Amino acid sequence: MLLVGGSTRAASTTTAVLRTVRELAPGAVLYEGLATLPAFDPDDDRDPLPPPVARLRDAVRAAPAVLFCTPEYAGGLPGSFKNLLDWTVGDASPRSLYGKPVAWINASSPASPTGARDAHASLAVVLRYVGADVVEEACRRLPVTRDMVGADGLVADGDVRAGLRAAVAALASRGG
Rank of each mutant, 00 (worst) to 15 (best):
A10T: 15
V168G: 05
M148E: 04
P64T: 09
T88I: 02
N83S: 07
V21M: 08
T88W: 05
R161G: 08
A124R: 15
L84K: 08
P48A: 06
H120W: 04
R19E: 12
V102S: 08
G176S: 07
V135D: 10
E23K: 11
V130D: 05
V126W: 10
A111D: 11
L171W: 06
R165S: 06
V160Q: 00
Y98R: 15
A35H: 12
V17I: 12
V125H: 14
A16D: 09
A167S: 15
N106C: 14
G27A: 11
R61G: 12
G5S: 10
S7W: 01
G150K: 00
P26K: 09
F40Q: 01
F68V: 11
K82N: 12
R165N: 01
L30M: 03
A25M: 07
A124F: 00
V17F: 02
L67P: 10
L3Q: 09
L142D: 02
T70H: 07
D43Q: 09
R46M: 00
R55P: 07
L3I: 10
P52H: 03
L30N: 13
A132E: 08
G175F: 05
P48W: 08
R19H: 13
V102E: 02
G27Y: 03
L49N: 10
S96L: 05
P51V: 06
A35L: 02
M148D: 04
C139W: 01
L85S: 05
R128K: 14
S12V: 05
L34M: 01
V149C: 05
G158P: 13
D43W: 00
I105F: 03
A169N: 03
A151D: 14
A121H: 10
D133L: 14
R61D: 09
F40H: 15
D118F: 05
L77Y: 13
E32T: 15
L34R: 08
D133A: 14
R46P: 13
A74D: 11
L37V: 05
L34K: 07
V102K: 09
R117A: 15
